[in-house]
Simulated scan of single mutants.
Amino acid sequence: MKCCAKYSFNGQKPSALSICCLLVLLLLGLSSGCAVNKTQNEPATDSQTQNMRIDSSHGSFELAPTVVSYAPENFSDPFESFNRPMFAFNDFMFRHILIPIGNGYQNVVPTPVRGGVTNFFSNIREPLNALNHVLQGNGSNTGVSVGRFLINSTIGLLGLFDPADAWFALKEQKATLNQTLASYDMAYGSFLVLPFLGQTDTRNGFSTLVEGVIHPLNTVADAPQSLYIQAFGSFHEFAPHAGSYEILQQQSDDPYLFFRNLYLQGVLRDAQFTEGAMPIEAFPLNPYSEKQHTVKALEPSDKEAEFTKPALEP
């Protein structure tokens, strides 16, 4: 679970530490090469009556927590000796610091205010969405992201409101560097746990750090203020799901394996969903992509079924 800071700079020379972090993640991703191997899933047999609401990059759905409890051999984990101590550190910080603060934040800050904050952070990253759509060769979504940014930054009062969606039916089309790299057939590499950022993989971790460096906030705020703002944005995104972490954490005798398998299954499910639902205009800059030959358009009902099937059916 992501919950805190991304790295940012404002026209200043990046520190040696930040450069090393980026290079290490890039090398890890490249050295990992192919995606993690997956073997036969073995869902836990204990029944649970309380379903969880799971949010991903392609939507939300309800899921019984036990369907992601797999045997340890299901996924390769070459960095487990590093990941486990980092997971233990994050787990302590989540349960004793971030979750209590997140619950208090949810109770104290009114819903309309939290909605405005969400709109602001969504709007400020629209240039990143547009850039990634360009790199993916998706012209229509590039125009949507640019239009949303111009409308919401002006009529929407610096993005606190979303008239682009409400008045012009321009819905957010979020795109990340992680998705862009995936569109060029770069595998997600290996499972990785980063401090505060939580569960990720080498490709996604590299994407997160790079986008933190080039984030549009760096053009309107000096370091370290831009870092603080981004950290608050990540905390704001984490706060509504603070309670979900505690519930899921209690579902297994080994929370590390539980969250690793939950994360990796989500990666594989998102990849399956994207390959099935990506518009035909996608990937024109990469004509040798195998996805060119597997893309097909799905109706909304088909998308939902395709998206939830791997998680709900053993």
Rank of each mutant, 00 (worst) to 15 (best):
F149R: 01
A16N: 15
R95F: 04
Y70V: 02
E237H: 11
F238S: 05
L23I: 13
K6Q: 08
P279Q: 04
Q292V: 07
L170N: 03
M86R: 12
I247F: 13
L131V: 13
P127S: 02
G212W: 00
L30C: 06
D165K: 13
P78F: 01
L268G: 04
A282N: 09
S252E: 03
G102W: 06
G189Y: 01
N37P: 11
T176N: 09
L227D: 12
F75M: 08
S301Y: 12
N83L: 03
L98R: 02
E211F: 04
D46H: 14
N152V: 00
A175T: 10
I97E: 04
V144Y: 07
N51M: 10
S207N: 06
C20S: 15
G189A: 00
A305Q: 10
R260K: 15
Q173F: 00
W167A: 13
E281T: 09
S15W: 08
M52A: 03
W167V: 13
A175G: 07
F196L: 10
C21D: 07
G243P: 03
S234V: 08
Q179W: 01
P163Y: 12
L298C: 02
Q12V: 06
L26K: 01
P310A: 05
K6H: 10
V193A: 03
T45Y: 11
V193D: 03
E313H: 13
N74P: 04
G115F: 06
T154E: 05
A169L: 09
L30P: 00
L285W: 15
P65Q: 00
G11R: 11
P314S: 12
P255Q: 02
I214K: 08
S140N: 12
N204C: 06
N83S: 05
L177T: 01
G102L: 07
T308K: 12
D46G: 11
L25I: 05
F82W: 15
Y70W: 12
T49E: 12
N218Y: 07
N204D: 15
N286G: 05
K303S: 09
D254L: 09
L135M: 10
V134N: 04
N103K: 12
E306P: 05
K303P: 01
R269V: 14
Q292G: 11
A297L: 14
S244Q: 11
L298D: 02
N141W: 08
P65E: 02
G33S: 01
T39Q: 09
F94I: 14
F121K: 00
A277H: 11
Y263H: 04
N41M: 08
E42D: 13
G29H: 00
D254C: 08
V108F: 07
F259C: 04
P216S: 03
F206T: 02
